[in-house]
Structure formats: structure tokens, C-alpha cells
Design a protein around this nucleic acid. Structure first.
Lengths: 190, 190
DNA sequence: TTAGATATTGAACATGTGTTCATTAAAATA
DNA sequence: TATTTTAATGAACACATGTTCAATATCTAA
């Protein structure tokens, strides 16, 4: 199943377009494989040649979005994990910008009938970014595992995003940034 | 559909037992509604009279488990959110005990093909507990929303659990408690 | 205990899933 | 361009989903 074969490229493109069209009309959970194939004019058997479930198709979009997350990150967010938390400029925290930018996708990712897979993709994305920074700045006690610490921090941020999502992303990106900055400052109060 | 009607009780019991038996043999995702009904000797139409998906059936178990979480909590965990983080006795953090106790269930909850619903049920459970404590001790700046803060802390803990789950719960409960205590102590270093 | 209420059943239907296989069409490459 | 390789197709299969409806069985309340 050579990925360069024009036939493969054409088929996948057709499926992508069909899914995107359908997603603009109804949620992923109500879209059937048969439906996607009918719209893409691709044989249903061919679908199974490339994917196991419709979720596999959706995941291909997700990859691109995760790349944007990586790009969004770059410099800025790492400030959060460094020592001088008072010095954080909330506007340098790019992750909430990224979520807002792909709001439409994240509404799917966080909807309750969708499989956990997408959640894990987001988690892994943030996890890697944080882990890299934490390792670089190795600002950690011996007693703490970098894995656990990264998982803790990554999912904490997703916690904010869940809360945000549940109000349909009504708060501004600035609000989210400020909340995060304030929470991170709490530890220092005492 | 009176919940007291003996016929209803009998039907639900049969479905519960069937699901439990099947779950001991294979993951939820590979169990079909038709299969559950065959085993329970309940008409498939009757299933749809009570539930929409097999997940609805599973959720009824989840309720009981969430009650255990509430009981597990009680006094102890609240120490985590109080000010003197140095004083935490890791053994008072009961949540990881709870997870370990229902390991078998949480293996399902965290498996990637399962819908997000269960994750949210766990999240909401921890969220409420934390929110209650945070409100009681109201140890928070004006600038921080209790909702966001609770979501942050609740999901952070689930982050640890995810990491734990991914190593198939090999670490001991004590290890998890120590990791959490150590992480919470970090903020105070500076 | 009986009469009325209602949960359960079985059958049927249109549609979706996941798989197989021989045939056909389109690509790669020599 | 001709040949070879291989992706896509269409048809068929057994099974699952979700829904409807009249007939039946079982409960509740009088």
C-alpha cells in the first residue's frame, strides 16, 4: 500500500473531503463509514484497506493540528515551568491560542461520545513539550519522576481547557492565560 | 417504566450480570448489545427500552464506584489543598487507593477506544470533592476562579493516574502518594 | 383474586459493519 | 510503449444496529 501511489493519494483525498463536508453538518458520532464512502465515491472495501474506523480518518487531521501546537509552543510556554513564575508574561503562553484557533476540532475532541484516543493525542502532545522543557531546565527534585511530573502538569492544563470547553470557549484567551499564571503563582504564596 | 416494577428489576439484573460475565472475558468495545441480550435472555428491543447504548449499562456500575470515591475521600485528601503542604501525610491521600481497588474498572475507563463519558464521570467526581474543600478553606486569590482552579487540580491528579495506568498500575499506591506530595511541595521551593 | 396497566416479546425491516474474492483499472518501472 | 505490479471495485456474506408494532406475559392496585 505505497503511500506515494497516486491512486492511494486520490482515494485518501476524497475520503478527507467527504469527512470534512459531513463534519460541517453533524457530529462525528452520527457519521457512518458507509456515508463517507458514498459521498467520496469510494468503495467501502477500499476504506477498510486504509483505515479501521472512521476515527482513523479523523486522526489524520489531528496530526496536522498537533504540528500547529508544536509550532505555537516554541519559545514561550516554557517560561511556565521555569523558576521565576512571577516573571511570566501571560501572553507568552500560546497553548490557549492554539485551542481557540482550532475550536471547531476541539469541540469534537472533548465531546463525550468520542473515543479517548483524541484526548490522549492532545495529552501526549502537551506532555512531550513539557517534558522537554522540564528536562532542559531540570528544576526537579530527585524524588520526583519526570514522567509523573510532566503528566501532572500536562493534564492540569487540559483541565483548564475542559472547563473552558464546557462553557463553549466563551472566556477569552487572555482570561485563560491569566488564570493559569495566577494558579502557578499560588505555590509561592507561603 | 417504573423502576420498582419487578419486571424491570429482573431485566436490569439480568443485563448487569451478562455484562459483568462478558467483561471478564473481553473488553467492552468487543461486546455487542446483541451478545449481552442473548446471554441475559432478554429481548434486544427490551434493552433499548432501558438504555441507548451498552455504555449506558456500564455507567450504572460506575455510579457505585463513584460512591466509593466519595467515601474514600472524606477527611483526608483535603489536606492536599490546605496551606501547609509540608505537613501532608501521603497516606492520607486516599484517591490512589480507590483507583487501585477498582483497577479492573479503570483499565476500561482509560482504554483508548472507550468514549470520553467515563473520563468525565471521574473528573466530575474529583472536581466536586476538590471544589468543596477549596471553597471551605477558601485559600484562593480573588483573581482565580474556583471552577478553573478545581478543574486544574482535579485533572492534574488524573494526569498522574493516566501515567500510572500506562504502566499498568505497576507502581505502588505509596509511590503515587509520594509523587503527588512531592509535586505539591515544589511550589514552595522558591 | 380479579381487572387494568404496562413491561416484555418476537418478528420484521432498512441500514451499517467488517470481511472475502475474483475481476478490473490504473499506476510504476523497465 | 509494453509489461508488471498493485490499488480499487462490486458482489456477496454473516452479523449488529436501531426502530416499529401487535400479541403476550407479568406485575400492581383495587
Amino acid at each position: 500500500m505505497s503511500a506515494n501511489d497516486l491512486r492511494v493519494v486520490k482515494t485518501k483525498q476524497a475520503l478527507h473531503n467527504a469527512l470534512l463536508t459531513l463534519l460541517s453538518k453533524k457530529p462525528l458520532e452520527n457519521i457512518t463509514i458507509a456515508e463517507i464512502c458514498r459521498m467520496a465515491k469510494v468503495n467501502r472495501g477500499t476504506f477498510y484497506l486504509h483505515y479501521e474506523q472512521k476515527e482513523g480518518l479523523f486522526e489524520e487531521y489531528f496530526q496536522e493540528i498537533m504540528e500547529d501546537l508544536n509550532n505555537s509552543y516554541e519559545e514561550p510556554y516554557r517560561a511556565v515551568t521555569t523558576m521565576d513564575k512571577n516573571q511570566i508574561d501571560p501572553n507568552t503562553i500560546r497553548i490557549f491560542h492554539h485551542i481557540e484557533r482550532f475550536k471547531m476540532f476541539y469541540r469534537i475532541v472533548f465531546s463525550k461520545n468520542v473515543p479517548l484516543t483524541y484526548y490522549y493525542m492532545l495529552f501526549d502532545g502537551i506532555f512531550s513539550l513539557l517534558k522537554r522543557d522540564i528536562t532542559i531546565h531540570n528544576e526537579i527534585h530527585d524524588e520526583i519522576s519526570i514522567e509523573y511530573y510532566s503528566a501532572y502538569q500536562a493534564n492540569a492544563i487540559i483541565g483548564l481547557i475542559i472547563q473552558w470547553y464546557r462553557q463553549d470557549f466563551e472566556d477569552s484567551v487572555g482570561t485563560l492565560n491569566k488564570q493559569l499564571a495566577a494558579i502557578l503563582r499560588i505555590g509561592e504564596k507561603y
